[in-house]
Each structure stands twice: as C-alpha cells, then as structure tokens.
Design a binder for these strands. Structure first.
Length: 608
DNA sequence: TCCGAGTCAATATT
DNA sequence: AATATTGACTCGGA
C-alpha cells in the first residue's frame, strides 16, 4: 500500500504528474465538444468560485519526482529492473517504426498457429506455457510463447531480449500527433511507463523453479494433441466449440482432468465463499453471471504463482488481447468466464495494466489471465466453452464468487418497489461544465480540502460525495499513466492480426504505410483529433448556447428557474467572481483544448 | 473517517 | 455488437 500512496504523493506536484493528469483530463473532453467547450469553458465557470476555494497547498514535497517517479520504487534494491521487460528490442525486421509489435505479432501469430504441432517446447518450456518459462535463457525473442510474462528476478538482464516483442510502447510519441496539440502537452512520460520498470520485488532466487502450477501446465502441454487444434488462422472461435473440439480433449488426458477440474469448479459451487452474493440484480433471469469462482483452489486458473515470479502485466495483457482477437472471443465472455470480472474491468485492465509489483489484491485477476494463457490452446478454448455451457447448466446454483465488490444494494431511489427488480442505478453524468470545471481544478489541485470540495460541490451543484469521488478517481486514474498515446490493445491486436494474417509476405506499400502511419510519428491519429478539432459549427453553436445558459445559471446562481434544490444544495454562495479562477481556467482550456486554434483561444481571452 | 485499490455496471463510443 | 469510459460501491488499512 504504501507504495501506492507514495506514488500518489510524489505525483502530486510533479510536473509529470501534471502532465499525466492532463492526459487524463484531456481524454474525455475529446468527445464532441471540444470546440465548444473550449470556448465556453472559461466563461462558464462560475466565476471565481475557485477563489473561494483556496487552492490547497498540495504537498509540496511532490515536486521532486520526476520521471521515474511513479513507477519506481525503485531503486530499491537493485532490483534490476525487469524493466519491464523489455526494452524492447526492436526487432529489426520491421521497418515500421517503432512499433515492433507488428513483427512480433506476426511471429507470435505464427507461433500460435503452430502451437499444436510443435513439440519443441516439449522440453521444459513448453510452448504455450512458456510464459512460465523455466529456463529463461532459452527464450527467444519475440514469441509470445516464449515471452515470459513472468520474470524471475534473475532474468532481468536477459529479459529484455526475450520480451522483445511486444511492446509497442516504445514509440511513444507517435501518437501524440494524433491527439494533436493536446497531446503534445501530455505526452511524455509515460509510455514507458510504469509497467516497465518494475523492479522486482522479491526474491531473487534464481533458479527456480517453476512453480507448481507451472509444472502442471507444462504437463498439459504435452498432452496437447498436436495437430488437433490447429489453429487455423481463422481461429476457431470460442464460440463454436464443436464436437470436434471436444474430441480433442479426449486425446489429452491430462487436459481432461484439468477440464474436469475446471468444470467441477464451475459446477459445484458449493462454496459460497464470498459473503456477498450477488443477487441478480435484475429480476429477470437470475442469470448467473459470474459463475465461476475465483476462489476455488482446484481451478487451474487460480493456480498460485510463486513470489519469485514477476509477471509482466503489460505483455500479458497484450497477449491476452491477441488471443481474444485471434479467436474472436469477446471481452465480455473472457472477462466473465475466465476472470470473473466485468467486461469494463477487463477492458480497463488491458488498457492500463498496473505493474505486478504494484498490484495488491488485483494480482488475482492477472494471475488468472496468466494461467489461462499458459494453458494449451485447446484447453484455453475448452475452458471458455466449458464454463459457458456448464455454467449455464449449473446456473441455478452457482453462487458466483465475485470479486470483492458486488453491488447489492440499490440506491435510495426507487422507493417504490423494494426489491424488485432492480432499481436501476441512475448514473450521473457530469455536464460538460461540471466536468471541465472539475478537471481544471484537478489540474491545480489534486487533493482539494474538504472545504474546497464542498465549495466546489455547491457551485457545481453536485453532492460532496460526487466531488470527492471525482477527485479520488481522477487521482487514481491519472496515476495509471495512461497509455493514451498508444493504440488500444484491441487496436493493436487488430493491426497485428491484420498484418500477420495478411500477408506476411507481402506487405505492400499500403500496409507499410499503414503501419507507419499508425505507429509512426506523425500523422494524426485515426480517431479523434481531427474530427474533434474541426469544428462543425452548427453543433457547436448549439452547445455553446447551452453552455452559456448554464453559465448564466451558475453565475446567477440560483436565480434561474432550475434552481431547485433537490439536492441538498444550499443556496450558494455568492462568491464573487474573481479573475483568478477564470484565468486559470482559461489557461487550461486553451492549453488543452485548442492549442492550435488560435481563434478560440483568442476569442476567449479577448472576451475576458 | 479517509484513502486507495479493485471493480461494477451503466453509458458512451467505435 | 464490442470495446472504452467512468461515477460510484465495497473492502481493507491506517
């Protein structure tokens, strides 16, 4: 824990941290309203309410940390950083920019393809298993299989070689362009991010040993029937587990046992370990959503991983993304069946994996991912299927063992029917103004005092708890270092897949171009920036109007009709507007949003 | 009580 | 239809 805390702390003041925050902030605004918002923002804010809110002195200490900061804990002992592994060795093969991934991918893809056939691994490091790799030295560089997500401390040195592949991070900058100016602000740091550097914590054992689990896995591998699962490039979707597949199992006894285990775990669900059982929220079907239990020790996916092992979560996530993509396994399915987590959680984890050494209870989830990929292909798919089917079968009874927090209760709202089916949790969505204001404040003060929060809440007409949640979430998320500039795993996989699948051989100019564009330095990113920035006036106008209205509302405070106080807001204050706030905001706005377009910025300024 | 971690799960985007 | 985002809930520590 402390680590986290520390990190947080350190983060506060730092520039970097700021940037990160910025990043964080920036992201959302993106959506549609950039223009408008940008413009309106300054104006909108309740005038100075910030003033009132005295910016709290954040921990002064912060400053120091710099780059390394967050992640690092570093130094500590020597840990040789696993650094994540991988400082990517860039594979030379690809011309493409930084992203070696492509190469990787392809290689990986192939590997996978062959999986079944290969016995090469048979030895110890089983192919699939590889993640476990026992012998680090042997691993080859980019192969997913080989690449160890896990590293033993020893490896460190060599590890980079090994891992090679996958990490796209390198290219950081590239994407910056995408985001446009904004990104420029942001970028920097992270890419490398956290993940990478992890010093491995513990033990240095060296040698070691494959954890038991791993051994088991390895065994499985052997069992895998070679040709059987041939992974056709086309993958067999998890969904279609045909008989044939099942047959395969037959061939591998060991696997079978595993499967059975898994199955049993699924089915039997006797254990209701977790206290809270998620009641089916919705009345409809009591569908067993999460059915498996993460606590079942028999479940291979719950196999423990030795302390001496360090899992490279980032690479693991890439691998997972690859697998999902390749086999057309929806995140939701994988998340729920294998990880016992929601789709959103999986998506988030995949996008922002925390370094292993910083994980607390969250390791369990990664452990499951790891154990899943470590299984032979057939088994991997089988487990998915099984769970599915069996689960359904068992549905009635299985009490899921969700992760720790299941939300049972509903909200105050629906007074009406109690239990019923579901009171849907109304979800609050900040208005543009609220969001922007909060973000602007966050930039200045990540940890506003209670009073300040209260003031903010009043001005924005939000509950204190909401404001508090905002800051808490913002702090946490900004800390993650997003890989904003990186394509999403999904995207990455898609690219890879494309390349790999497509032609390996002929990378036509087009593809190449694509790659370069995608990962290369310039060129605006596909998704947002461009569109957003461009203004579409019409819409903008509308939004503007709205914004203005709201502003007015704020300024005048309660005057406007809506004022209502459903919330417990009190009439607020009358804080006079102070330039300060506005300035702040302006700056923010300008910087973030429309760096380029001078117009807006100018306008705003002028206005003020 | 307050915070951070880990998630959920409703929404938004793609 | 799938994936990404995100406000809020639940836990465990301090």
């Amino acid at each position: 824990m402390e680590s986290s805390r520390t990190a947080a702390t350190s983060t506060n003041g730092t520039e970097k941290s700021r940037r990160r925050n910025t990043d964080y902030l920036q992201i959302d605004p993106s959506s549609t309203f950039i223009n408008n918002t940008g413009r309106g923002f300054a104006e909108e804010l309740p005038e100075n309410f910030l003033d009132t809110i005295s910016p709290h002195p954040i921990t002064p200490s912060a400053s120091t940390s710099s780059a390394t900061s967050a992640t690092e804990e570093p130094a500590t002992s020597s840990a040789p950083q696993l650094a994540s592994l991988a400082p990517m060795s860039m594979s030379s093969e690809q011309p493409s920019s930084s992203f070696s991934s492509a190469s990787l991918l392809s290689s990986s893809y192939e590997t996978i393809k062959n999986e079944p056939e290969d016995y090469r691994f048979s030895g110890s490091t089983a192919g699939l298993l590889s993640p476990l790799h026992v012998d680090s030295r042997r691993r080859e560089s980019h192969d997913f299989n080989t690449s160890p997500y896990i590293k033993e401390e020893e490896d460190l040195d060599g590890s980079h070689l090994l891992m090679g592949g996958i990490r796209p991070d390198t290219p950081t900058n590239d994407r910056s362009t995408d985001l446009g100016s904004i990104s420029s602000l942001l970028n920097e740091d992270h890419h490398t991010n956290t993940i990478g550097q992890s010093p491995s914590p513990r033990s240095t054992f060296g040698s070691d040993p494959t954890p038991m689990i791993q051994r088991q896995l390895i065994k499985n591998e052997d069992g895998v029937s070679p040709g059987s699962m041939g992974f056709s490039k086309n993958h067999q979707g998890y969904q279609k587990p045909r008989n044939g597949d099942r047959m395969e199992y037959e061939k591998a006894p060991y696997q079978r046992s595993l499967l059975n285990q898994a199955l049993s775990s699924v089915i039997s669900t006797p254990t209701i370990s977790s206290s809270n059982i998620p009641t089916p929220p919705s009345a409809h079907i009591a569908q067993p959503r999460r059915i498996y239990s993460t606590q079942d020790s028999n479940d291979p996916l719950n196999a423990e991983i030795g302390d001496d092992i360090y899992i490279d979560t980032k690479d693991l996530c890439k691998r997972i993304a690859f697998e999902l993509k390749n086999h057309s396994i929806p995140q939701a399915i994988f998340a729920e069946r294998i990880l016992c987590r929601s789709q959103g959680t999986l998506s988030d984890l995949l996008r922002n994996p925390k370094p292993w050494n910083k994980l607390k209870s969250g390791r369990e989830t990664f452990r499951r991912m790891y154990n899943w990929v470590a299984q032979p292909l057939a088994t991997r798919l089988a487990i998915l299927d099984m769970k599915t089917e069996d689960v359904n079968r068992a549905s009635g009874m299985s009490p899921p063992t969700p992760a720790q927090n299941v939300r049972t209760h509903s909200f105050r709202r629906s007074t009406s029917d109690h239990d019923g089916p579901v009171s849907k949790r109304p979800r609050l969505v900040f208005t543009d103004i609220q969001k922007r204001t909060l973000q602007a404040i966050f930039k200045e003060t990540q940890r506003p005092s209670r009073e300040m929060q209260q003031t903010i809440a009043e001005h924005l007409r939000l509950d204190l708890s909401t404001v508090a949640n905002f800051f808490m979430n913002a702090r946490r998320r900004s800390r993650l270092g997003g890989n904003i500039d990186e394509p999403t795993p999904f995207q990455q996989m898609a690219e890879m897949y494309k390349e790999g699948a497509i032609a390996t051989s002929n990378h036509s100019a087009e593809q190449r171009e694509m790659i370069e564009r995608g990962f290369g330095v310039s060129i605006p990113g596909p998704s947002h920036s461009g569109e957003l920035l461009n203004g579409d006036s019409h819409e903008d106008d509308e939004e503007l109007d709205e914004l203005n209205d709201s502003e007015l509302a704020y300024e005048e405070d309660v005057e406007i009709g809506d004022e209502e106080e459903e919330d417990e807001e009190q009439a607020n204050g009358d804080i006079l507007p102070t330039p300060k706030v506005e300035e702040l905001e302006e700056k923010t706005v300008i910087k973030e949003e429309a760096p380029d377009d001078g117009e807006y910025g100018a306008t705003k300024l002028a206005a003020n």
